[in-house]
Amino acid sequence: MTQAQARGRQSQPEGPRRELPKKSRREGLRGIIKEEFGNPERRAAYYLVVPALLVIVLVAFYPIAYSVYLSFQRVLPNQPGEFVGVQNYVSMVADPSFREGFYNTVIFTVVSVSLEFFIGLAIALAINRAFRGRGLVRAAILVPWAFPTVISAAMWRLMFQDQVGIVNYVANTLGIISQPILTDQTLTLIAAILVDVWKTTPFMALLLLAGLQVIPGDVYEAARVDGANAVQRFLLITLPLLKPAILVALLFRTLDAYRVYDLFWVMSDRQLESLSTYVYKAVRVSQLNFPIGNAAAVFVFFSAFAIAIFFIKVLGMKTSTEG
């Protein structure tokens, strides 16, 4: 894919048409920057980005750099350590609860994000049409997302509970389950996925809806005149033009799901392990496991980074204009 195409796809439908002048303008601009160090545009750029950068460096990079450093040491908090190489990572992989947390997290992330994406896309397509009461439907659809996770998870736990929970009651009456849902690890994981889909599909739908809104209607009109059917219009127009929105939605939901934490804790009464609960338990609850928990945290960070790179490569987002 050439650079111009990539940029066109990702900015907006009209992109490719005005690609050439834009590019040459940019190169001209870069020349100016080289000549003129005190270029006001460039100075303004720095001013504008500084507040965000300052906050983020302070609250995010210092901790992560420190964690990486510590992960190669044998330390307890507030004690000087010694360099032990990858020893912490070896112990981490050898720990069965780490592996369990890893599997649970991967299954949870893949299943819940896929379900959320497909259902969310369907909802977005449905509410993108003009129909009576659309505004109300759009507002109503976000309601599940409006609840704090700790609260909605607690509410669902009440519904899943043995004896008094309605879901458990119905599933039991229908003979779907033979034991209370929350006593079984797999069923609890399925329940957690269900709750996550219920809660965050609206978020997905909203992001995709925003993407759908910027697709110009005349593109569809032109395709219809050319004899494209509904499926073709969806696959050849909607999907490619929706790509930037899909990227944002998938990337952020995946990274969020991958760090799942409060949902698992509340739903399973701290029994169901995820990568983040593993980190939390090791780092906070038992200080002896601090080095391993810290290594796991670093692992979460870098694997999440790999996921992000994967999405960016597959969906072709460009973070640069230079290419």
């Binding site: 920057i33 992560i64 780092v283 979460v300 999440a304 980074f305």
Partner: peptide, 26 residues
């Protein structure tokens, strides 16, 4: 805006989304 280091800064910014909260909370 085009400015030196933009892409690196932007990637660093995105990477903050990948840190579990337990890591930086302390």
């Amino acid at each position: 805006y085009d400015f030196p280091g933009r892409n690196v800064i932007f990637l660093l910014l995105l990477s903050t989304l990948m840190i579990p909260i337990q890591v930086y909370i302390v």
